[in-house]
Structure formats: structure tokens, C-alpha cells
Computed example of a mutant assay.
Amino acid sequence: MITGSLVALVTPMHEDGSIHWEHLDALLDFHLENGTHGIVAVGTTGESSTLDPNEHCKVIGHIIKYLDGRIPVIAGTGGNSTREAIHLTTEAYKLGADACLLVVPYYNKPSQEGLYRHFRAIAEAVPVNQIVYNVPGRTACDMLNETVERLADIPNIVGIKDATGNIPRGIELINAVSGRMVVYSGDDATAAELMLAGGKGNISVTANVAPRAMASLCEAAIAGDRAETERLNELLMPLNRKLFLEANPIPVKWALHRLGHLDDGIRLPLTSLHEQFHGEVEDALVAAGVL
């Protein structure tokens, strides 16, 4: 089981939008040095929507090769086309990914039956461990707990990233799929409470800039240490909020640029963080002790 702080890694880019491979390696070293438990490669935060399929697979393969088994790699391979998701998941499996993360199809607004058949088709086509990902705020489609319960009976669908931010609903889901599937948070602001309730980790944006603190928070929460979890959560809460002042990954890429880890590179239609938000993100970095 993959557990703990699983960073939703940004994809470093030069100012012209081309991938910055040297900065990618440096970021991976940064996470190894600071206790991150796993890397999520080319998810939403990694700008999966602006990388072409060849680049998508190349980044996943580069990360897997560079880490060489030191920590797990979860490859983002979802899509709103079932055929495309199967293709990307197959390629990630061939490259050696430990698991794949598959977002609910966006824009299409499939039915609950359509969602079930979509994820079942991918699981049956590719024998890699798979984590489904529900983020209705971005996909305009909410996968209900009842549908997740059905998916939990498929052997290689081993987890769900729940980014609803709804703790009562998350607790209900943890109880419903216990022993068949693990639940990860996909919402930094509510991750601590979900892990204290039985979640097994956090697929985190905040971990990009505060990896050590997020790793410690996840360890404490999974161990049931409420006092330490709450202390660390309070430390990180300004970042959890301010890193979403504009659409992810705009603020977190600017924050990493401010910390000296990245060039100010991002691909259209995304643009660099608006100047009016710079001070708020800087203040959050200072509050977390990383700037």
C-alpha cells in the first residue's frame, strides 16, 4: 500500500514553455531529501492538460528512471476519452509506474453507469494498480460514493483520491470501502481530518513547497496523533488556502519560482500568477517557514 505525503508534482518549464529536465531532477532530489513518500507524475498539477501525449509519457518515464525505486511513482493517466486513458495507462505500466491515477472524465458529464464502465474498462485492460480521482470542482462531474463502492470490487482499483473536501462524505466512503480500497485526500485544506478518520495519505499540492512539514503531518495523522497533526495543519493552513488563489498550478508554480526551484514557466492557456497575489503567497510561504 502506498501511503503518506504523495506530492502532486509540478512539471518544471523554461519561460518559453518547454520542459526543464534539469529542474525536474532537482525537484525530485528535493523531495527525496525532505521525506516525501511518493510522487504523482503529470496529474492536474503537472499540467497534464497542456502536455501532448508523447511529452506526458516522456515525463513519467523520466521520473521513474531517475527515482529508480527509491519512492513510489503514481502516474497520472486519466482522460475524458476511455481509449486515451487506456493508452496512457498502458504506457505508464510499461514504463514501470507503481500505480496510475485516473481522474473522473471531465466536460463529458457521463452518468454514474458511464463512470463505472469507464474505470472498469481501464482496469480490465491494464493490470496495474489504479487510483480513481473524484474532483467535481474541476470535472463538472461528481462520482457518487455508491459508484466508488462498486469499483472497489475490481481487484486492481486499489484507491480513490477524494478531492470533494466533504469530510462526512469522506468518512462514509472510508467505512464503505474498508478492506477493499484505500482513501486518499486530494484537498490540502481538509486532508488532516480525513487522514485522522482513516485516510491513508494526501495527494498534495502544498507538498511541492513544504514537503517536510506535509510528510510529517501525514505520518502523524495516519498514526492517529491528533495534537501533532493539528499543530502542523495550523502551520500549513495559510499555504493550503493561498496556493489556490488562482487555478492550480498557477500559484504553486509561482511559489516554487519565488523559492528558486523553477523558472517562471507555464503553458497557455495558464499564465503566471497575477502580481496582486504575490504578497499573499509570499506571506504564506513565510508563515510555513519555507521562505
Rank of each mutant, 00 (worst) to 15 (best):
M1K: 11
S5A: 05
V10L: 00
M13L: 14
E15W: 10
D16Q: 02
L24W: 14
L24P: 15
L27A: 09
L27E: 09
L28I: 12
H31K: 06
L32N: 02
G46I: 00
E55T: 13
E55V: 07
G61C: 01
H62N: 09
Y66C: 01
D68P: 12
I71Y: 04
I71T: 01
T77W: 06
N80F: 10
S81T: 01
A85I: 12
H87R: 12
T90K: 07
A92W: 05
K94E: 07
L95Q: 15
A99I: 00
A99T: 02
L101Q: 09
L101C: 13
V104F: 04
Y107S: 00
S111F: 00
E113A: 15
E113F: 14
A121T: 13
A123M: 01
A125V: 04
V126E: 05
V128C: 13
Q130V: 03
I131R: 07
V132H: 06
T139Y: 08
A140V: 15
D142F: 12
T147G: 02
I157C: 05
I157P: 00
V158Q: 09
T164I: 07
G165T: 05
P168C: 15
G170Q: 14
E172C: 14
V182R: 06
D188M: 00
E193I: 14
L196N: 04
L196K: 08
G198C: 01
G199F: 06
N202F: 05
N202G: 13
V205W: 10
V205I: 10
T206K: 12
N208T: 02
R212H: 12
L217Y: 07
L217M: 11
G224L: 07
G224H: 08
R226T: 12
A227F: 10
A227E: 05
L232E: 04
L232D: 04
E234D: 12
L235Y: 09
L235N: 10
L239H: 08
N240R: 15
L245P: 15
N248H: 03
P249H: 11
W254E: 08
G265D: 14
L270T: 04
L270Y: 12
L273H: 12
E275D: 15
H278L: 12
H278E: 15
G279R: 04
